[in-house]
């Protein structure tokens, strides 16, 4: 168990921090970003690696959930094909708001090297994307940096207001 030191001289001697509702809600949201396991291709392996022992994603409060109902952020890791496209839309619609999408890797961003008949040229044709991570495949560090940027983005929002509708590309 972590030992938390309490400064009894501050805040009237109580272990209390005063803040606004916005900040506390955003603090909670940004530090428990549960991600949907959406490993589609090679990037999915790097996503697993960032969840595994060396990179340890749990430090960020990011835990992979298999159900869209329990997930806050969808990490689209890999090539999205035209056959799969309808399922990403279904899963995105099943996620509860507020929800965010990270497009991980070149294939998810723009179609990448697979400039072919079967590949969707960027997931932003199907669902709105908050963050694009470059690389083929991006390293786990990139994904972690991306999650930190997303946390910053969440903190900048007003938690009490409804999210603005995101537009497709």
């Amino acid at each position: 168990m972590a030992q938390h030191k309490v400064n009894y001289t501050q805040n009237g001697g109580l272990p209390i921090a005063l803040t606004s509702v916005d900040k506390i809600v955003n603090w909670g949201r940004s530090n428990s970003l549960w991600a949907l396991t959406y490993g589609l291709a090679c990037c999915g392996i790097e996503m697993m690696a960032s969840g595994a022992s060396r990179y340890d994603f749990d430090r960020f409060g990011t835990i992979f959930r298999a159900s869209p109902r329990q997930a806050d952020v969808m990490i689209v890791a890999g090539t999205l094909t035209k056959k799969h496209a309808e399922f990403i839309k279904r899963l995105y619609d099943q996620m509860t708001e507020p929800r965010w999408v990270i497009s991980m890797g070149s294939c998810a961003n723009t179609g990448g090297m697979f400039n072919t008949y079967a590949t969707v040229q960027g997931v932003d044709r199907i669902i709105p994307v908050d963050l694009y991570l470059p690389g083929c495949a991006p390293r786990p560090e990139t994904l972690q940096y991306g999650v930190m940027l997303l946390q910053k983005k969440i903190r900048a929002n007003h938690a009490s207001k409804a999210q603005k509708a995101k537009r497709l590309m």
Partner: peptide, 11 residues
């Protein structure tokens, strides 16, 4: 199957 078919043979 086919959800990751990217057309490599055609490429």
């Amino acid at each position: 199957i086919g959800y990751l078919h990217r057309g490599m043979e055609k490429m």
